[in-house]
Amino acid sequence: MLEGKLEQASLFKKVVEAVRELVQDCNFDCTENGLALQAMDTSHVSLVSLLLTADGFSEYRCDRNLALGINLVSLTKILRCGNNEDILTLEAGDSADSLVVRFENTQQDRMSEYALKLMDIDQEHLGIPETEYAASITMPSTEFQRICRDMQSISESITIDCTKGGVKFTCEGDIGSGSVTLKPNSSADKPELCTKIDLSEPVSLTLSTKYLLNFCKATGLSQQVTLKLADENPILVEYPLSAGHLRFYLAPKLDE
């Protein structure tokens, strides 16, 4: 059986909120190491990979591997029944047909319990190959969100060019064009505001603005985001969590 307790429901609420537009039905794979979710969107353009490790839970127990088939629209409805500060417990038996979601307020004088019906989802497990990325850019997640938001009204695509000197985001559309360049910087007092670039060779990728902006729904989960780029490979957009990560992969646009 699975029993996982999170001290704040907000983490799980935010994670589900961040992925529910890309993925509707998916399996939450529960093992002794934690909860994992991996799913592609219906158009097979992007992939979500979530890991909540067992040490991120205040209590965690999973005796046998379980795949919990969940409709994220339904799960969202149930998660909205709890407050962000509530203690959240997820519970499912070995052959359970539902996931029990419990909320307890911090005063411990209000307990609520909901059961979400589980689905049988036949989901492919994909192997993500180890990739040698040409560039890794770590930057404030709010900055990345701002660039995607600003460029959304100009173009359907954003080109990311990374060189040693900096990273340049460019868009070109019917009304005109735009670019934002960020140079590496560091601040010892506020490391969350730093931009860091690790580069082995210059790289350029053109990506869908709509999908990048969708990934930015995870902004509230982490102050920093890491973009990893390799020529003609999917970009990896990673939001580190205190115990685990939320990763998005997006196939690049290719010139014909």
Binding site: H44, V45, L126, Y249
Partner: peptide, 14 residues
């Protein structure tokens, strides 16, 4: 014009 690629070629079904 750039064509949107898909992930299928990059990730293998286990």
């Amino acid at each position: 014009t750039a064509q949107q690629g898909r992930l299928d070629g990059f990730f293998k079904v286990l």
